[in-house]
């Protein structure tokens, strides 16, 4: 019996506690979301019927199932508020991901071209903002973007504008906030693939007569696509469900699905509709989540 075999047994037992924890606090809660999304709103505490009561036994649970209704999902698909927030989430996430790619790629590329001993420092500099409070970084932008904030002061001083520009409560402010917050998520996977690239490939391309520009588009960029995919998904998925950034920076005119969920839950106290919105959001995210999982597996299998 090899040492590998002997070792696998106790290591397997190590997984028991975290396994149970994740089942109880991650998997089971989704069951409740699903169940309550099929319940009816009520003026009660908690504000929905039917309530599962395990103490009442199997017949009560069967009865509860009989009362499940799809009304909340009907509401989601018939009310234009929900449809528009659903669509807006997708539009905002796609647009932000594209902007992030456009800004993040040149930065990651520049990092990969730094002298070797500087690269860990550059990487550290990109990671630090990720650790720094997200809320505080959004707040920092409110400081800058407000009516008499620094940005308007600079623009006025340079005579680029004649009157203060309204930045806050606009989509521009929201996109600035999103790009600012998610930039490290885009740069790091890109840098990881770019820095592993074999420089001799570019030399070969040059020997064969490619200009640096051609070499980039024909060699570097295609080879960096796994990083592009990972970075794009790592940004796209959480941005779709983003709540804090649009709430603080965008106008109140149109909402993203995370804001709709929040509003239904906290303001309207309509838990079943909020749960239905969560299920809808989850359904939207399943394909990109699976895609991300496959990409990760391939990277791990490739020794990345």
């Amino acid at each position: 019996m090899s040492a590998r075999r002997i070792f696998a047994q106790p290591a397997r037992y190590a997984a028991i506690a975290p396994y149970l924890w994740m089942v109880l606090f991650f998997l089971v809660p989704f069951g409740f979301v699903l169940k309550i999304s099929l319940s009816q709103t009520a003026i009660a505490q908690p504000p929905y019927v039917p309530v599962f009561d395990f103490a009442e036994g199997w017949t009560a649970i069967k009865e509860a199932f009989a009362q499940l209704s799809f009304d909340n999902f009907k509401l989601l698909t018939s009310d234009s508020l929900y449809i528009s927030s659903y669509l807006r989430s997708i539009v905002v996430a796609v647009t932000s991901t594209l902007i992030l790619l456009l800004i993040g790629y040149p930065i990651a590329y520049g990092m990969a071209r730094l002298p070797q001993r500087w690269q860990p420092i550059a990487m550290m500099l990109v990671i630090v903002p990720f650790w720094t409070s997200f809320l505080i970084r959004i707040y920092a932008w409110i400081n800058i973007l407000q009516h008499d904030g620094l940005l308007n002061q600079v623009l006025l001083a340079l005579h680029l504008v004649s009157a203060p520009v309204v930045w806050l409560s606009t989509d521009t402010a929201m996109y600035i906030g999103i790009v600012y917050s998610y930039l490290p998520f885009m740069i790091l996977p890109l840098y990881a693939t770019l820095s592993k690239m074999d420089a001799s490939l570019l030399e070969a391309a040059a020997d064969l007569g490619a200009s640096p520009r051609q070499a980039f588009w024909l060699v570097t960029f295609p080879l960096s696509l796994p990083g592009v995919g990972a970075g794009a998904l790592l940004c796209f998925i959480p941005i779709v469900g983003e709540f804090v950034i649009p709430d603080l920076l965008a106008g109140s005119g149109s909402m993203m699905i995370g804001q709709t969920l929040w509003l239904e839950f906290f303001t309207n106290k309509d838990w079943p509709v909020a749960a239905a919105a969560a299920v809808a959001l989850l359904v939207l995210l399943v394909p990109p989540l699976l895609l991300y999982d496959r990409l990760q597996r391939r990277t791990l299998a490739g020794g990345g």
Binding site: I237, P238, V240, F243, G258, L281, L282
Partner: peptide, 10 residues
Amino acid sequence: VMPEVISGLS
């Protein structure tokens, strides 16, 4: 990567 609104609500 899960949106926090989902984890929080569930």
